[in-house]
Design a protein around this nucleic acid. Structure first.
Lengths: 192, 192
DNA sequence: TCGATTGTCTAGCGGTGCTAGGATCGGGTC
DNA sequence: GACCCGATCCTAGCACCGCTAGACAATCGA
């Protein structure tokens, strides 16, 4: 029995290695460079080993996304915890979100740009995704305003942040006035 | 001389055919299905012909994006023209934008999701892109509010719309409350 | 120690974007 | 009208992609 347990541990460890390596490679050279061949070479196994852990590349992206969602939730809660008052918390949240996207572009892509085969906004949505949204909701629910559904408000605020993050990173928005845009977003959307 | 002119006309015509076919194929089956082989087959030429018009697939996407930008500008101006008053114009603009993204997903992707090799928010940005942004600015400049730079405000509003469009289409936002989100966005961001 | 099972690798499939080099076609010149 | 030459196009192929069948080796239980 102990032998089987050891094997399971080793297997789980290798799976973590695959996900971590995929993420590392993606952050270094972009997701286009994350090919099954390169990934297999980096973990020092052959390609088919990847397919004994994941159905395919999509599922690997999904695994990176789930890790990222958990980290995003932690980052958001850490950002808001240090701030005093609803207004400051929302500003900190927005900055924390955009900062996360900027610092972890590959993870952000895995989460929100690429197809990782994950279900969003549904019953079978994985827990880390729900929790990341919950982290947003905890802070934004305070400033939704009278008669506005907190969930809908959070979705809108999130969408705005997502738009800013993606358009900025793709060079479609100039970085020059990034801070003004964030302040304007918080000023207008949040009801203090 | 006339012979040469005829050849140039035919060449330009074939180039339009390539772009139109790429767009059609992308709208029908998604950009992943737009391979140089399928595209070449549809226009009834061999693959290398594509490369006598464009440097590569990226440039073809860029050409579709430019066409789309011109159409988007027209659609936005048409949407706002029918509305009375700044508030109604902004609502119409937002709906028009999201409607365009929903109806032309492949074109929208070419414009704002994929890499078409186009410069954004720079001096050498192609005219259709500048004009599409101008169409947004014309309407949104009216409601930026005191002391807020119209351009920065437009960028923020656009980013919010972009976030709503992409997250909704990717199934990351439920379609259920789409209309509420738009109304909330206009209510809060626009200063009437 | 042997057989079965599990695990891994080699090799290869059909596909991708892109290109080198040969064939062919048509226009301009004698 | 015949010929040459340049422009134009296609065939064939490169290196790479995601993914998988089947051979092989290592390990376990009897």
């Amino acid at each position: 029995m102990s032998v089987q347990e050891r094997k399971e541990r080793e297997r789980a460890s290798r799976e973590r290695l695959i996900v971590a390596t995929a993420r590392e490679l993606a952050e270094q050279q972009g997701w286009d460079a994350v090919t099954t061949r390169k990934l297999a070479e980096r973990i020092e196994y052959s390609q088919p080993v990847l397919y004994s852990h994941f159905r395919g590349k999509r599922e690997i992206i999904g695994a990176v996304a789930l890790d990222g969602a958990a980290e995003l939730a932690v980052a958001l809660r850490a950002a808001t915890a240090a701030a005093d008052g609803p207004r400051a918390r929302v500003t900190a949240l927005a900055r924390g979100y955009l900062d996360f996207a900027e610092r972890n572009p590959a993870v952000y892509d895995a989460l929100f740009q690429l197809d990782g085969g994950l279900a969003f906004a549904q019953e079978d949505t994985p827990e880390p995704l729900k929790d990341a949204f919950a982290a947003l909701l905890e802070c934004l629910g305070e400033v939704a305003g009278e008669g506005v559904h907190p969930g809908v408000f959070t979705e809108l605020f999130w969408a705005s942040l997502h738009g800013l993050a993606t358009l900025t990173r793709a060079g479609r928005l100039p970085r020059a006035f990034a801070e003004q845009r964030v302040e304007l977003l918080v000023d207008r959307l949040a009801v203090v």
